[in-house]
């Protein structure tokens, strides 16, 4: 039967991480930016599960559980912040919120 190497999964994980990074840097919509960090988290989770399988121990899977719970709590905060700012600015554009001069 067919077999497949660990590195194939790692490659997909790395590609997801990279695409998420591109999205974070190019998109200026706050919701989109946070969605892109979630893609990066997905890449990391795939890495961890693949390593967990490779090493035959459940530590990687436990790591992913913690990853998911932190991702959930960060999502709660992110959406809270987005709602707060949207109420005051009526836009989701990250560039428009720069009252501070660099």
């Amino acid at each position: 039967m067919s077999q497949i190497e660990l590195y194939h999964y790692l490659a997909v994980g790395a590609i997801l991480f990279g695409i998420g990074l591109v999205g974070f840097m190019t998109r200026r919509n706050l919701i989109m930016m946070f969605l892109c960090t979630e893609i990066m988290f997905q890449g990391v989770a795939l890495n961890l599960i693949a390593f967990s399988r490779f090493h035959m121990n459940p530590a990687g899977q436990s790591f992913v559980i913690f990853l998911l719970s932190i991702a959930a709590s960060e999502a709660a905060l992110a959406l809270g912040l987005v709602v707060l700012l949207f109420r005051r600015r009526e836009t989701l554009n990250a560039d428009e919120w720069s009252e501070m001069q660099g």
Partner: peptide, 30 residues
Amino acid sequence: IIAQEAGVKYFFLGALAAAIFLFGFSYLYG
């Protein structure tokens, strides 16, 4: 509003940084 903007900036970049070091952690575990 300047504080809330600072909060958003701090938080979003913080989430990005967390993703970056988690990627590193996943390779260390691997």
